Amino acid sequence: MVLESEGYLDESCLGAAVMPQEGVRVRLDLPRTDDLADIVFLANNRKIASHLATMPHPFTLEDARRMVQRSAVLNSTHASFAIRMATTGRLIGQATWSALEPGGPVQVGYWLGEPFWGQGFATEALQMLVDHAFAQGDMRELLADCRVTNAASRRVLVKCGFQYRDQSMARSLGAGGSVPIERFALERSVWRALKHWGRVA
Protein backbone atom coordinates (compact mmCIF):
# COMPACT_ATOMS: atom_id res chain seq x y z
CA MET A 1 0.00 0.00 0.00
CA VAL A 2 1.24 3.45 -0.75
CA LEU A 3 -0.37 5.50 1.99
CA GLU A 4 0.04 3.33 5.04
CA SER A 5 0.39 6.52 7.15
CA GLU A 6 2.14 6.81 10.47
CA GLY A 7 -1.15 8.09 11.80
CA TYR A 8 -2.34 10.90 14.03
CA LEU A 9 -1.45 10.01 17.59
CA ASP A 10 -3.05 11.55 20.62
CA GLU A 11 -2.70 10.52 24.22
CA SER A 12 -6.36 9.65 24.79
CA CYS A 13 -5.89 5.87 24.67
CA LEU A 14 -8.93 3.68 24.91
CA GLY A 15 -7.50 1.99 27.98
CA ALA A 16 -7.95 -1.73 27.51
CA ALA A 17 -8.15 -1.47 23.75
CA VAL A 18 -10.07 -4.21 22.00
CA MET A 19 -7.82 -6.35 19.85
CA PRO A 20 -8.90 -7.85 16.51
CA GLN A 21 -10.33 -11.35 16.51
CA GLU A 22 -7.89 -14.06 15.52
CA GLY A 23 -8.16 -15.32 11.96
CA VAL A 24 -7.79 -18.81 10.56
CA ARG A 25 -4.15 -18.53 9.45
CA VAL A 26 -3.04 -15.13 10.75
CA ARG A 27 -3.71 -12.98 13.75
CA LEU A 28 -3.21 -9.29 14.51
CA ASP A 29 -1.65 -8.10 17.75
CA LEU A 30 0.91 -5.61 18.95
CA PRO A 31 4.52 -5.86 17.79
CA ARG A 32 7.03 -6.37 20.60
CA THR A 33 10.69 -5.67 21.14
CA ASP A 34 11.44 -9.37 20.61
CA ASP A 35 10.09 -8.91 17.05
CA LEU A 36 12.77 -6.37 16.13
CA ALA A 37 15.00 -8.82 14.25
CA ASP A 38 12.08 -10.15 12.19
CA ILE A 39 10.84 -6.63 11.46
CA VAL A 40 14.22 -5.51 10.15
CA PHE A 41 14.76 -8.72 8.18
CA LEU A 42 11.39 -8.41 6.41
CA ALA A 43 11.01 -4.63 6.11
CA ASN A 44 14.50 -3.92 4.80
CA ASN A 45 13.37 -4.69 1.25
CA ARG A 46 13.19 -2.10 -1.52
CA LYS A 47 10.32 -4.03 -3.17
CA ILE A 48 8.22 -3.33 -0.08
CA ALA A 49 9.40 0.23 0.62
CA SER A 50 8.75 1.34 -2.96
CA HIS A 51 5.05 0.48 -2.53
CA LEU A 52 4.62 2.42 0.72
CA ALA A 53 4.51 6.11 1.53
CA THR A 54 6.67 6.39 4.64
CA MET A 55 8.80 3.25 4.90
CA PRO A 56 12.49 4.11 4.48
CA HIS A 57 15.03 2.00 2.64
CA PRO A 58 17.33 0.84 4.07
CA PHE A 59 15.14 -0.03 7.05
CA THR A 60 17.19 -0.02 10.26
CA LEU A 61 16.89 -1.37 13.78
CA GLU A 62 16.00 2.15 14.95
CA ASP A 63 13.17 2.26 12.38
CA ALA A 64 11.89 -1.03 13.80
CA ARG A 65 12.02 0.36 17.35
CA ARG A 66 9.97 3.39 16.26
CA MET A 67 7.42 1.10 14.64
CA VAL A 68 7.00 -0.86 17.87
CA GLN A 69 6.67 2.37 19.90
CA ARG A 70 4.02 3.84 17.58
CA SER A 71 2.05 0.59 17.64
CA ALA A 72 1.80 0.75 21.43
CA VAL A 73 -0.70 3.63 21.09
CA LEU A 74 -4.20 2.39 20.26
CA ASN A 75 -6.97 4.98 20.29
CA SER A 76 -10.06 6.06 18.38
CA THR A 77 -7.97 7.47 15.52
CA HIS A 78 -5.16 4.95 15.13
CA ALA A 79 -4.32 1.27 15.47
CA SER A 80 -1.24 -0.52 14.18
CA PHE A 81 -0.74 -4.27 14.46
CA ALA A 82 1.78 -6.96 13.73
CA ILE A 83 0.51 -9.56 11.29
CA ARG A 84 1.49 -12.95 12.72
CA MET A 85 1.17 -16.56 11.70
CA ALA A 86 -1.58 -17.96 13.89
CA THR A 87 0.23 -21.26 14.46
CA THR A 88 3.72 -20.00 15.31
CA GLY A 89 3.25 -16.36 16.32
CA ARG A 90 5.99 -15.29 13.89
CA LEU A 91 5.67 -11.70 12.68
CA ILE A 92 5.20 -11.56 8.90
CA GLY A 93 4.08 -7.96 8.34
CA GLN A 94 2.11 -4.98 9.61
CA ALA A 95 -1.46 -3.66 9.24
CA THR A 96 -2.59 -0.16 10.23
CA TRP A 97 -5.64 2.04 10.19
CA SER A 98 -5.42 5.72 11.10
CA ALA A 99 -7.01 9.10 10.60
CA LEU A 100 -4.77 11.24 8.45
CA GLU A 101 -5.77 14.18 10.67
CA PRO A 102 -8.19 14.59 13.61
CA GLY A 103 -11.71 14.01 12.32
CA GLY A 104 -10.37 13.37 8.82
CA PRO A 105 -10.51 10.36 6.49
CA VAL A 106 -9.36 7.01 7.82
CA GLN A 107 -6.72 5.21 5.77
CA VAL A 108 -5.84 1.53 5.95
CA GLY A 109 -2.52 0.07 4.93
CA TYR A 110 -0.47 -3.07 5.26
CA TRP A 111 2.69 -4.80 4.16
CA LEU A 112 3.90 -8.40 4.19
CA GLY A 113 7.41 -9.74 4.09
CA GLU A 114 8.29 -11.05 0.62
CA PRO A 115 8.50 -14.76 1.67
CA PHE A 116 4.77 -14.56 2.53
CA TRP A 117 3.45 -12.97 -0.67
CA GLY A 118 0.85 -14.71 -2.82
CA GLN A 119 -0.56 -17.01 -0.14
CA GLY A 120 -3.71 -15.12 0.89
CA PHE A 121 -2.31 -13.84 4.18
CA ALA A 122 -2.77 -10.17 3.22
CA THR A 123 -6.45 -10.68 2.39
CA GLU A 124 -7.15 -12.36 5.72
CA ALA A 125 -5.21 -9.69 7.64
CA LEU A 126 -6.96 -6.82 5.85
CA GLN A 127 -10.40 -8.34 6.54
CA MET A 128 -9.57 -8.45 10.26
CA LEU A 129 -8.17 -4.90 10.15
CA VAL A 130 -11.31 -3.56 8.44
CA ASP A 131 -13.56 -5.31 10.97
CA HIS A 132 -11.54 -3.82 13.82
CA ALA A 133 -11.59 -0.29 12.36
CA PHE A 134 -15.35 -0.23 11.78
CA ALA A 135 -16.04 -1.84 15.17
CA GLN A 136 -13.83 0.62 17.08
CA GLY A 137 -14.43 3.83 15.15
CA ASP A 138 -17.42 5.76 13.85
CA MET A 139 -16.02 6.43 10.38
CA ARG A 140 -18.40 6.32 7.41
CA GLU A 141 -15.80 4.75 5.13
CA LEU A 142 -12.24 3.51 4.94
CA LEU A 143 -9.79 4.58 2.27
CA ALA A 144 -6.89 2.65 0.75
CA ASP A 145 -4.36 3.26 -2.01
CA CYS A 146 -2.07 1.07 -4.02
CA ARG A 147 0.48 1.76 -6.70
CA VAL A 148 -0.86 1.35 -10.22
CA THR A 149 1.80 -1.31 -10.80
CA ASN A 150 0.81 -3.31 -7.68
CA ALA A 151 -1.73 -5.76 -9.11
CA ALA A 152 -1.49 -8.06 -6.07
CA SER A 153 -2.49 -5.30 -3.66
CA ARG A 154 -5.33 -4.24 -5.95
CA ARG A 155 -6.68 -7.82 -5.85
CA VAL A 156 -6.51 -7.85 -2.04
CA LEU A 157 -8.49 -4.61 -1.82
CA VAL A 158 -11.17 -5.81 -4.22
CA LYS A 159 -11.49 -9.15 -2.38
CA CYS A 160 -12.10 -7.19 0.82
CA GLY A 161 -14.90 -5.13 -0.75
CA PHE A 162 -13.03 -1.91 -1.55
CA GLN A 163 -14.28 -0.11 -4.63
CA TYR A 164 -12.15 1.82 -7.09
CA ARG A 165 -12.46 5.62 -6.88
CA ASP A 166 -9.82 7.22 -9.11
CA GLN A 167 -6.13 7.64 -9.84
CA SER A 168 -3.73 10.18 -8.40
CA MET A 169 -0.08 10.72 -7.50
CA ALA A 170 1.47 10.23 -4.07
CA ARG A 171 4.93 10.59 -2.55
CA SER A 172 6.76 7.42 -1.65
CA LEU A 173 9.89 7.64 0.48
CA GLY A 174 11.03 4.19 -0.61
CA ALA A 175 10.45 4.92 -4.31
CA GLY A 176 12.30 8.23 -4.02
CA GLY A 177 9.54 10.47 -5.37
CA SER A 178 5.94 10.62 -6.56
CA VAL A 179 4.30 7.52 -7.98
CA PRO A 180 0.91 6.93 -9.68
CA ILE A 181 -1.64 5.32 -7.38
CA GLU A 182 -5.18 3.99 -7.51
CA ARG A 183 -7.51 5.07 -4.73
CA PHE A 184 -10.17 2.81 -3.25
CA ALA A 185 -12.90 3.15 -0.60
CA LEU A 186 -15.04 0.80 1.48
CA GLU A 187 -18.24 2.29 2.87
CA ARG A 188 -19.59 1.09 6.21
CA SER A 189 -22.89 0.07 4.57
CA VAL A 190 -21.02 -2.12 2.06
CA TRP A 191 -18.96 -3.66 4.88
CA ARG A 192 -22.15 -4.48 6.80
CA ALA A 193 -23.62 -6.13 3.71
CA LEU A 194 -20.47 -8.17 3.17
CA LYS A 195 -20.52 -9.30 6.79
CA HIS A 196 -24.17 -10.35 6.36
CA TRP A 197 -23.75 -12.08 3.00
CA GLY A 198 -20.25 -13.44 3.54
CA ARG A 199 -17.08 -12.07 2.03
CA VAL A 200 -16.74 -11.48 -1.67
CA ALA A 201 -15.11 -14.34 -3.54
Rank of each mutant, 00 (worst) to 15 (best):
K47D: 11
D29A: 11
L157I: 04
S50W: 01
P31F: 05
G104W: 01
A79I: 09
V148F: 03
A86Y: 13
Q136K: 09
M139Q: 04
A37R: 15
L112V: 06
R90D: 01
F184E: 04
D35L: 00
N45I: 00
L52C: 15
G93R: 08
V108Q: 10
I83V: 11
E11I: 05
A144T: 04
P31Q: 04
D29W: 12
P20N: 03
Q127D: 06
Q107C: 05
H57T: 05
V108P: 07
E141K: 14
D138W: 05
G118A: 03
H196A: 12
T88D: 05
E114V: 11
S153I: 02
S76A: 14
D63E: 08
Y110W: 03
L28Y: 07
V106W: 00
A79D: 08
G198I: 05
E141M: 14
N45S: 00
A79C: 10
A201M: 09
G174K: 12
G176S: 00
L28F: 06
R66H: 13
R183P: 02
L186Q: 06
K47S: 10
F59L: 11
R147A: 07
G104I: 02
G89E: 07
W97H: 13
P31D: 02
R192E: 10
F59T: 08
R165S: 13
L112E: 07
C13G: 03
V106F: 00
N44Y: 06
A64E: 02
Y8R: 09
A133V: 04
K159A: 08
S12W: 11
T33I: 15
R65W: 12
R32E: 13
D10E: 10
V158K: 08
F134C: 09
A16M: 05
A152K: 11
N44E: 05
L186T: 06
G176C: 00
T54S: 15
S178N: 14
E4H: 05
E101Q: 07
D38Q: 09
P56M: 04
E4A: 04
A135P: 00
Q127M: 10
R155M: 09
F184P: 04
K47C: 08
A79V: 09
S80Y: 14
W191L: 03
A43M: 15
A82E: 01
Q69R: 15
W111Y: 06
R25W: 13
M85H: 06
V2H: 14
G198P: 05
G161I: 03
Q167C: 07
Q167A: 07
V130E: 01
Q107K: 04
Y8I: 08
P105F: 01
M128H: 04
A175F: 13
I92C: 13
Q127N: 08
A86W: 13
S178I: 12
V40S: 06
R46A: 15
R192V: 06
G174R: 12
R32G: 11
D63H: 13
R188D: 07
D38C: 06
A133G: 02
A122S: 08
S80V: 13
V200D: 12
R188V: 09
V73K: 08
D63L: 10
R46H: 15
V130T: 03
L91N: 07
N75L: 01
Q136Y: 07
D35Q: 01
A82R: 01
S172R: 09
R65Q: 12
Q94L: 11
C160D: 15
